[in-house]
Write a protein that binds this DNA or RNA. Structure first.
Lengths: 214, 214
DNA sequence: GCAAATTTGTGATTGTTTTCACAAAGGGCG
DNA sequence: CGCCCTTTGTGAAAACAATCACAAATTTGC
């Protein structure tokens, strides 16, 4: 008999906790496919290199999902995590900048596998981009950004434009109502505080490795 | 009169410090292009959203680079940071898995701009990959991995293979002597502790944003 | 060449995150 | 059905990270 959720909400959950929830959720997805019924915090932690207490504390941020002496019901916990992470509905994503990197992102299978819906791409040279991309995601001229977003709700904008454009594009997507940005451009952007921004800085990761091999 | 480096080494520097050094280094690169001679810790911090004390503490891990009452000589500090980060020589990178994402990575301009040298790509279907990629980086069959690496020193391996292959590929590059891995595949890998691994998990970033927009 | 103004480098402090450790809860086996 | 074993949930402790605050060093301007 699965335990209840509880509407525990908004107590400034650290970003690191959210990322780990996401990892837990993925492990649970695998377990469910393997028809595993239950898992303990120790087991879940071991698969990701985390302490069992950390797993329990992370989950405790959102309620009590476990059964003492037993562990967690895989399917039940997964359902709860998906709901917490906002993945119990389709999350709508757009991409701006369908260049080299953007082309890969727009058809990246990992996104769709995790239940994200890539709606449209936007590019300054849409013809060239369309040729480059092998996917059914339509690519529009970046001028159509506002008119396309208008009305349709877009959850997340992924940015992969040239560095010189990044601030102006960020402002445009924010003005169009987008509340979350995933930025692949190695430059800070200034946005209102309620807009969530994540940076993925590929060169930075390489540089941090470079330190250890020198 | 620029201060000295000092051979300060190995006191378990947190990864987060290294990443910030990398960010500092990039700002300094820009400043140098603008012919700015000096910068204060407060100024450097402001550009990245960090506290000035943090900037100074980070730098203090590796020596005394500043001049009290003056600040830091841009060119001098940059040189020191590049040396600390192991960027004062060419860092040699290979890519394994030249699929959708790998194709973008192999010719990603951000890497070369930061001074990394993409040596070769390796693929199970090298012909298809070669057609897909518009860059001069040669692409070999993944069977040639060991023979190519042999002798030639490779600093970092970037992995973008299918999830099912990841552990076996990781073991092969480690066996071939690679000491650092940048893994784009959303799966943990088991490697000897002296091998540095960084994970870039694109779907994870989207999921953490999804939490905030739900 | 001296005094005022800066800005560094760093010990002390505060805040955050992780780990420990254990009481309480529940399952499972005899 | 009852006892033992496992595992949760969580306060307390430890480890880690960021910020404060100030003495010491140096520049700048007069």
């Amino acid at each position: 008999m699965p335990p209840t959720d509880g509407e525990a909400e908004r107590k400034i959950i650290p970003q690191a906790v959210i990322k780990r929830l996401s990892l837990y959720s993925r492990i649970l997805q695998d377990l469910e496919l393997e028809n595993v019924e239950k898992i303990s915090s120790a087991d879940l932690g071991r698969r990701l290199g985390f302490n069992s207490a950390q797993v329990r504390k992370d989950l405790a941020c959102f309620g009590q999902f476990g059964v003492p002496g037993f562990g967690y019901y895989v399917s039940d916990l997964r359902k709860n995590l998906r709901s917490i992470l906002g993945k119990d509905r389709t999350v709508r994503v757009i991409l701006i900048g369908v260049g080299n990197l953007g082309s890969a992102l727009i058809s990246y299978h990992g996104f769709t596998k995790q239940g994200f819906k890539m709606m449209w791409g936007f590019e300054a040279q849409p013809e060239a981009a369309t040729q480059r991309v092998r996917s059914e995601v339509p690519i529009y001229h970046v001028d159509e950004l506002e008119s396309k977003i208008q009305g349709e709700s877009v959850d997340i904008a992924v940015l992969a434009v040239p560095a010189t454009e990044i601030q102006s594009i960020a402002e445009r997507v924010v003005a169009a109502g987008v509340k979350a940005i995933l930025n692949f451009v190695p430059a800070r952007i200034e946005v209102p505080e309620e807009v969530q921004v994540r940076y993925v800085d590929l060169a930075l990761e390489l540089e941090s490795l470079s330190y250890y091999v020198r």
